[in-house]
Design a protein around this nucleic acid. Structure first.
Length: 553
DNA sequence: TTAGAGTTGGCCCC
DNA sequence: GGGGCCAACTCTAA
């Protein structure tokens, strides 16, 4: 009797450079291969994932299914809590081996450790190779001085130099034209006479019980970005074909106000990398190919390659601090800043009228509101636009905790990724990594610089489409006669500014100065595990091997 | 212990 | 568009 193998797709929604699939296929004598994705109804109904991202995920699953079908296989969707699903399904399928890509996110580590325990108890071989980052994060941490990852990008780059180039992408199919069939599923379908474990056709039918909270966006409502590996590879090739643009890429010089449907100034590959529709190693080596053929090219941190090093930087740090990374009060590298209402719980903080205005794009500052409207509509905005609205919410204007803003991005961004999202919010709020809190984005001056004609504002805020250029950034300054003429009364059709930027900015800076003087940092709930130079994997090290990270409070 | 650097601010001058 | 200044932060390498 041959082996029955399950490949569990979570991220890595792709065939190319799929490490788990590759390992699985290296097993000889395979009788049945089950390529599965587990859709957890709890997660679907949690409200944590916006419609755009759920749609993107569904499209990615559909694309993966089609790719597998070309190889005589298919993607099986199982519904429920993963552990419970496996307890039920694995005995039925007589599974011998389980393969999935290792996931560094705190909730995933917890979930996966339960799955591994289940496999151990049932003598099921379980393997979870690293594939979502360029390097195995545990190896990176072993290279760190004192076992603690550096907090600056430049010293992280030194570490990267030591690591050498990441591995070349692999072809898991290795010239194989067909994959082993999911035998028991085919038998079960024959018996019942209906298709089973199929990929949902649309968001309304996401859940078996029909209780999907989502409605499929119409063609007009759909974001400009469609999910899936096919789309990812197409997009990457198209961008990299403009070799000059790739080699001259300098992030701060790319425009946050590109209103062309494809947003050509940056790659917009982040959603594809987030879901693993595009392998980060494939992207790395594809960029390197362009660089080699050109000879001269820009350098990190601003270069295109520099951008994926930023991802690796935040991933490494997030993995080191685990769950403590994600909240101000527990993060040992996060300066404790007494944000507005931050003595109350997060849900109470989110009831603040200023916060509600910010998240709904109703602050009265057109450029800030335009960015928030783009986020809600398209699930994506340029990195600099994210900077400006994050600065506005936190230290710049509203003085509201970065955790509130983080949650809005986490819901609405197609590329929402905890390591990067938390990292960037820590950065922008001057809570960690970045400390020059006196550098503040002006919601007016910065807008004039990046959107010199106000076209971006008019595109995302049609209510201001006829506002003359001289008032587009500060419409409250438009004379009433102008407001009447264009049919947009400020305070009625579009809000008045909720704060006086010049006043609150100076006030906030004084409070920031005071918070910095107090030098208080988050208190970790769990003690970070140090990674000594010994060879034991980090997960096997006991909690008693405490961190050497200086606890500053 | 200390100098220098730090992904991408705004302002003013040239 | 480029440079120096604003007033002043922390991290890192030496």
């Amino acid at each position: 009797m041959g082996k029955r193998i399950v490949v569990w797709f979570r991220k890595s929604l792709r065939i190319h450079d799929n490490i788990a699939l590759a390992e699985a296929l290296q097993e000889g004598n395979v009788e049945a291969l089950y390529c599965i994705f587990v859709l957890d109804p709890w997660f679907v109904q949690s409200g944590k994932v916006g419609t755009n991202r759920m749609q993107f995920l569904l499209e990615s699953l559909q694309d993966l299914n089609q790719s597998l079908q070309k190889h005589n296989s298919r993607l099986l969707i199982l519904q429920g809590n993963p552990l419970q699903v496996f307890q039920q399904q694995f005995p039925k399928w007589e599974v011998n081996s389980l393969y999935f890509e290792w996931d560094s996110e705190p909730y995933a580590l917890e979930r996966d450790s339960l799955v591994k325990k289940f496999c151990e108890e049932h003598s099921i071989h379980c393997s979870s190779p690293s594939g979502h980052t360029m390097y195995n994060l545990q190896n990176t941490l072993r290279k760190c001085k004192n076992g603690t990852p550096p907090l600056t990008y430049s010293s992280f780059l030194n570490l990267i130099k030591e690591m050498g180039e990441p591995n070349k992408p692999i072809d898991p199919l290795n010239n194989r034209s067909s994959l082993p069939e999911p035998r028991k599923v085919i038998e079960e379908e024959k018996e019942k006479g209906i298709p089973l474990y199929t990929v949902p056709s649309d968001l309304q039918n996401l859940l078996e019980d029909g209780k999907s909270p989502y409605i499929t966006p119409s063609k007009e409502e759909h974001t400009p970005f469609y999910g899936g590996e096919t789309e990812a590879l197409k997009r990457m090739k198209a961008y990299l074909s403009h070799k000059k643009q790739v080699c001259n890429f300098e992030k701060p010089k790319t425009g946050p106000c590109d209103i062309s449907p494809n947003k050509n100034t940056t790659t917009v590959l982040s959603p594809y990398i987030k879901f693993g529709c595009l392998s980060i190693r494939t992207f790395f080596h594809a960029i390197m190919e362009v660089y080699k053929s050109a000879g001269t090219y820009s350098k990190p941190p601003e270069s295109l390659l520099g951008q994926i090093y930023w991802r690796e930087f935040f991933y490494t740090i997030a993995y080191f601090y685990k769950k403590d990374y994600e909240s101000m009060s527990t993060n040992p590298i996060c300066i404790q800043i007494p944000w507005k209402n931050s003595d109350k719980d997060l849900e109470t903080q989110k009831k603040d009228p200023h916060f509600i205005a910010w998240k709904n794009g109703q602050t009265g500052f057109p450029w800030i509101d335009a960015v928030m409207h783009q986020l809600r509509k398209e699930g994506w905005m340029h990195h600099l636009a994210r900077h400006a609205v994050a600065c506005f919410l936190t230290r710049g204007d509203l003085y509201i905790s970065w955790e509130c803003g983080r949650d809005v991005f986490d819901e609405l961004l197609l590329d929402a990724d905890p390591a990067l999202n938390n990292g960037n919010w820590l950065w922008l709020s001057s809570s960690a990594f970045f400390h020059q809190y006196f550098r503040v984005y002006s919601p007016i001056v910065f807008a004039k610089k990046v959107d010199p004609n106000g076209d971006y504002i008019r595109h995302y805020l049609p209510v201001l489409k006829d506002m003359p250029k001289e008032y587009i950034y500060e419409p409250w300054k438009a004379p009433l006669v102008v407001q009447k003429r264009i049919g947009c009364i400020i305070g009625q059709d579009y809000p008045k500014p909720i704060v006086d930027h010049e006043v609150v900015m100076k006030n906030n800076m004084t409070m920031m100065k005071q918070a910095y003087a107090e030098k208080r940092y988050g208190k970790p709930l769990q003690i970070a595990v140090s990674v000594s130079k010994n060879k034991r994997p980090i997960e096997q090290q006991g909690q008693e091997e405490t961190s050497t990270k200086k606890l500053k409070n």
